[in-house]
Design a binder for these strands. Structure first.
Lengths: 178, 178
DNA sequence: TCTGTATGAATGAACG
DNA sequence: CGTTCATTCATACAGA
């Protein structure tokens, strides 16, 4: 536990861009992204960006600051978390699906669809994302600014013996006291 | 926020395994554990299980699915919350105790006792709990098997160390699709 | 019906 | 990167 905990409050009132965020008073202490910020970040992620470089983080942060207070580390963490959670979720769901046949489907296909939908995100991960430069200040050097390609692997991983695969692992959860 | 807020449960409202579920028709929208499920989870927790591994979560989830609809993430969240709240409560109590010098019992002694009692669980936390080793289908190697793809060890450690002064090119992140 | 509380779910932050 | 912690949001449910 790092007990440093600076905790600087700031939170410019409720300047929050425009989206909802009606949630709370958004005190302070930790970054609370505006809907616009989330939107952009999500879109970048969906575009394939998973591990932005320091430069990219810097740029993204700068741009997002337009919508509200934000720091580089926020962007950094956002991507770390988003990526990690996408994987974690995928892992868990896929596991559940195998167990589904158990008592599955006596319910509307809608539900099944919903679950599948959530888990079926195209695995296409474009590690390289083109952050289109614009000549915002006229004298922009107009350089293409190609963001280097990160290695994308994701090969070896998951699917470790979930218990020798299938047929009900048949282990007893009915603890003695039940 | 999260665009994928799907999952309309429908909860066939019938399958409930062992009866119980005194709750109700349990519509859905969020997991509503049956009394049996809570019982098992609680017992596991009391046994010392605090942070089940992914494997354990799967197994627990599978077993609990007998009592009703449940997903891995539900188990995951359950332990996460339970642990956090126990900790939170404990902290609260200790704070209150110090507060006693100033406040001195505004609440009935009974209630206070109850809280203290509940929070005073032997700190012994068996982080690793042998999940019912019933010699079911045995070969559950239970190993972590974490493949550490060591690439760049710590290259991307944030800390906005923009390093070599590369003047950040003005590029626009306002994606066209926004 | 309204309100307070318990708890499921989500996520920012950070650790190992 | 996977995991864990802290805090907060959202909702089911009990009591008044």
């Amino acid at each position: 536990m790092d007990e440093a905990m600076s905790a600087f409050c700031v939170k410019a009132g409720s300047v929050r861009g425009g989206g909802g965020n009606g949630s709370t008073g958004t005190k302070c202490g930790r970054w609370n992204p505006t809907t616009e910020q989330v939107k952009v970040l999500t879109e970048l992620f969906r575009s394939g960006l998973r591990t932005p470089s320091t430069d990219q983080i810097q740029k993204i942060s700068t741009q997002l600051s337009f919508y509200g207070k934000i720091e580089s580390k926020n962007v950094f963490y956002w991507f770390q978390n988003h990526k990690a959670r996408e994987r974690q979720k995928r892992r868990r769901v896929s596991i559940d699906e195998k167990d589904l046949f158990h008592q599955e489907e006596k319910i509307s296909p809608a539900k099944h669809f919903a679950e599948l939908n959530r888990a079926s995100d195209p695995e296409r991960v474009i590690e390289t994302l083109q952050l289109f430069p614009i000549n915002s200040f006229g004298h922009d050097s107009d350089q293409k600014l190609r963001l280097h390609v990160n290695e994308f692997r994701e090969s070896a991983e998951f699917f470790y013996n979930i218990g020798t695969e299938m047929e009900h692992p048949r282990l007893d959860l009915r603890l003695s006291f039940l």
